[in-house]
Design a binder for these strands. Sequence first.
DNA 1: GTCTATAGATTGATAGAC
DNA 2: GTCTATCAATCTATAGAC
Lengths: 226, 226
Amino acid sequence: MTLSSSTRERLLDAAEEIFAREGYRAASLRAITTRAVVNLAAVNYHFGSKPELLEAVFTRRLQAMNRARVHGLALVLESARAAGRPPKARKLIEAFVEATLEHARSGPGERNFMALVLRSLSDTDHTVKRAFEDFMKPTFDALRAAMAEALPALAANELWWRLQFALGAMIRMHHLALAAESGGNNPSQPAVAEAIRLLTDFVHAGLSAPPAARSGHAASAQGEPS
Amino acid sequence: MTLSSSTRERLLDAAEEIFAREGYRAASLRAITTRAVVNLAAVNYHFGSKPELLEAVFTRRLQAMNRARVHGLALVLESARAAGRPPKARKLIEAFVEATLEHARSGPGERNFMALVLRSLSDTDHTVKRAFEDFMKPTFDALRAAMAEALPALAANELWWRLQFALGAMIRMHHLALAAESGGNNPSQPAVAEAIRLLTDFVHAGLSAPPAARSGHAASAQGEPS
DNA sequence: GTCTATAGATTGATAGAC
DNA sequence: GTCTATCAATCTATAGAC
């Protein structure tokens, strides 16, 4: 933890790291302030409370992260439009996955933040859920809109679910990569690069599979609530 | 919480439920003993400590759950062998997913336990990780062995990753179903049934996609450590 | 803005009567 | 086996000196 930055930022860095490693609930303000080499009372002075500190950690990096992903999608859409043809599903997946990983590796802070995001995806703590609620949505919507152009044959409901499955596969890869990384046994960089390629293949095949034959009730055509 | 069962079992039931809902760390022994209508000191008397209580919760249902899944796979393998042909990947997926869901719905206790398993998959707490460590492995190995017969063209490494992606998709479906279920807005039973069918389609397409063209280094042919 | 000191609540665990 | 009572540790948050 560099002492050159302000107390406020050192607190955000330390919180990001410890929330990611220990989880929101298990992380104590004492551990965070100690890591930040800052007085315990500074949290209350600068942020007010522990929940507000978590919120500040999120808002600091969310914009940049989502912008990187949506930008990656936009590039693919643009070049497809310029060529007068629909975008390719595979290109969109690659853009999304690569933008995410590239951003997550752009610095140590971003790396910690990615770990925190991953954790938060399955954290059921009330505070975490609320702070994280609107995070995936704009990005997911952008992905869905782009993918709808690439796969016009899919019903809205079917596309929604397939994208959720794709997200699940992607999240699992991140989990395994992160666990191997911090778990001591180094999976070596090439293995991760290989995994990304395998992920793209898998997800692409799943998304591009022929639409399910409608077996009766078409009532499930509308998207999910959330 | 029925009062007809023993103190020990009422504690296990209550712990299962509250660990699943609040998470291991956030769940207090007071909340658990209150729910079980049992004295606070009973936890220490019957199990010794909080970690040991968690372990007892796991071991109570693990066997039955994994047996149901492995049995589902075995049935498919058997009938394929009887017919003298390799098993179908789709049948294996269906068997695995259905055995899991069927078991998870076989009773209120099993339902809670499934929620706890889901939580534990991404819990980074030391105690939870240790208690959960060897849980997925035997089942995953059975799935991998069966699937290797169905998809002999895939390299071991590639099959390993694809199965992990498939698991990720499955886990995500469970997460969404569970969140919708406990989140008030009822996704209606048919929607979940539809999701299972869509999941099977997605996963099957991903698993059965043609093997990746080996792009140079064949060093990644061995399976992952864990 | 940063510090010390501490309030106030909650936790896991246990001693000892019954 | 079950109870009451309580210890010791830990937590978030805050009051008030500097």
